[in-house]
Design a protein around this nucleic acid. Structure first.
Lengths: 245, 245
DNA sequence: CGATGCTTTGAGGGATATCAAGAGGGGTGG
DNA sequence: CCACCCCTCTTGATATCCCTCAAAGCATCG
């Protein structure tokens, strides 16, 4: 699973049909691979990247930094994701990207991607679609932070991430490595840490899910999905997890 | 300003360079124009559109509908915006789109857009960029609902919309038509209506902005931007409003 | 002119932020 | 190898913000 090209192909095939020619172009993309420690930034708000990141393994997060030093995570990304492709077209980063757990990331020059898109429009469309799914994930996060209760919001986040990890084949049965701290969870869901903890307790009490020591364990998927009002449609993937299990 | 083609060209030129050939392709796009009353949906969650909407005039909003009937607006769109282009690549809508005030909307068949993209990749890139700016707007809304105070969140929303309207040349000096109800503002910012009203009063007290009867009046842009921590970088436009005014 | 929907305002209670402090674990340096 | 430190998790107490409920004022519209 450590071949960046294969990873990207598999990830795009989650939602898009790739022609053999597309795959060939992906396979010819040059890239550097680097490793990052938890908490380490690899792109900062305000920078103008010349390369696009592909998560090869581990977990990374995108976040806004506010005036008062407060942090708001806007999304998390797993192997196969492209957490900053938008910089291909937007130049200046409006947010930072950091490793959450230890992470391996491949960097592909923008020039090469653009060239591939021009030659293979269908490849560009696949990555465009990827960015559109990201946008759908953002929309869902708006709703999470605006309209859902703390319990539902947390349940929804757990569902989404578990589902995406499952899709990417990164789960160990019903458990998944999710190395965030409670503080980071709070910075994602807009809760104070004490509230995160109490909400977590409340969720544990439902026996649908457990999260501790960086491990997410799903115990009753269907009920958890119900609590979080999670409907995976917005992820636009082939369903890896039947809602009735 | 009622020519849909010109409108789209101008809107894309806000952030992208279009070749004469791109403009020609836009000008040849067939489209239907329809008018909608406030509150009227024109695309619903779950549908699979075959046409893409272009706002010609008025205001439209995208929103999630929750299980309990609650509504969460995720974004607003003005003349020149494409509030559902993502459906080109995502098939099923994960949200609905409705008119907020009276709105005129042009509909362009997906097929025609796709054909234009294949012939003119640069035109596709321009619209891709548009969707990426949308995503940046979503990210900002996550932060608004998660990390900012009620006052800052409302100020930020006002700044963003006023700024975008200004960009599009839709303002009358320092006032802009923004025909939302307080209820809808609440469904955008994740506040109860009483809180919306009190937050509004608080903002009025700063003499930086007023909003009543569907009109947004900016009285002190720089101070308002400061209250809302508004930095327009994420909109990726040529600056239509100097922050020192 | 009654009905409807939006705005305005008050009162009260509940949820969550804030503050505080202890427990546990892992790493570091003496 | 032990002691200390730091970081995260855990928990309690308190304060405050905001939601909910309620109702009146006002405009629009049939």
């Amino acid at each position: 699973m450590y071949n960046a090209h294969q990873l990207l192909v598999r990830s795009l095939q989650m939602h898009s049909r790739l022609a053999r020619e597309d795959v060939r172009h992906i396979s010819s993309l040059p890239h550097d691979v680097r490793e990052f420690q938890p908490g380490e930034d690899f792109i900062r708000q305000g920078e103008v990247p010349k390369v696009a990141a592909l998560v090869v393994s581990g977990l990374v997060g995108r976040y806004h930094l506010l005036g008062n030093g407060r942090r708001q995570y806007v999304s998390f990304h797993i192997a196969g994701d492209l957490p900053d492709v938008q910089a291909l077209f937007l130049r200046e980063m409006d947010h930072s990207v950091c490793a959450i757990g230890p992470a391996i990331v491949a960097f592909v020059p923008h020039r090469m991607l653009m060239r591939a898109f021009t030659r293979r429009p269908s490849l560009g469309f696949a990555i465009w679609r990827e960015t559109l799914i990201d946008a759908a994930i953002f929309r869902e996060a708006i709703t999470n932070n605006g309209a859902r209760s703390t319990v539902a919001g947390m349940a929804h986040l757990f569902c989404e991430l578990f589902y995406r990890a499952r899709e990417a084949g990164l789960n160990d049965g019903m458990t998944w490595d999710f190395p965030v701290s409670l503080t980071q969870l709070g910075e994602t869901l807009g809760m104070a840490i004490a509230t995160v903890y109490r909400t977590l307790q409340e969720l544990r009490a439902t026996s649908t899910v457990d999260f501790r020591e960086g491990k997410l364990v799903i115990k009753a998927w269907a009920r958890l999905a119900k609590i979080g009002e999670f409907d995976p449609g917005y992820l636009h993937a082939k369903d890896p997890l039947d809602s009735s299990s």
